[in-house]
Nucleic acid binder design. Structure first.
Length: 158
DNA sequence: GCCAACGTTGGC
DNA sequence: GCCAACGTTGGC
């Protein structure tokens, strides 16, 4: 199973919001970047995704989610009244996709961006740490994922 | 709130 | 197809 990381602004939708949803499941709508969309289309049911809080006081990886559907068209692209409405997308040829994700657990402690940067050696090539990277959905290599779980267990924030 | 980095748009 | 202008992301 593949691993991913997905960003959300906690003021808009946080890990606690996900945990509070019916069946603790939510559609990850609003992605309007082709690269991020393509990663979602590459997701398979059962994949694991890290939940990352972005654009906030403490940017950090905060939890784990399960991908519970394959990618399907994002309905908000066809909704005129919606912020993410895309007039150029046609129902017969949808431009934007999403997957449903289910809450799995919060990390025992948040792993902050600052801490992640202190581990650039072990995390070399991790898209989140690349300069100028703004992707909201990105793949995580198995060895990076394992290292992150090891960090979670470690007592001290390096 | 600032601004660097990036993606998209549209004129030519 | 180039590239300037514009909008967005997201850390700080």
């Amino acid at each position: 199973m593949a691993h991913w990381l997905m960003k959300s602004e906690p003021d808009t939708f946080s890990i606690d919001d996900l945990a509070a949803r019916p069946r603790q499941t939510e559609s990850w709508d609003g992605v309007r970047n082709y690269q991020a969309r393509n990663f979602m289309r590459a997701m398979r049911k059962g994949d694991t995704a890290l939940f990352y809080h972005s654009n906030c006081e403490q940017p950090a990886i905060v939890g784990l989610m399960r991908v519970v559907t394959e990618a399907y068209p994002d309905p908000t692209q066809f909704d005129r009244k919606h912020d993410h409405y895309d007039p150029k997308s046609k129902p017969e040829e949808p431009r934007w996709s999403l997957v449903d994700v289910q809450f799995e657990r919060k990390l025992k402690r948040a792993i902050t961006l600052t801490e992640l940067r202190a581990h650039v050696d072990a995390l070399a090539g991790f898209a989140l740490l690349m300069k100028g990277s703004r992707l909201s959905v990105m793949p995580v290599r198995a060895e990076h994922f394992a290292h992150l779980l090891k960090l979670e267990k470690s007592k001290t924030a390096a």
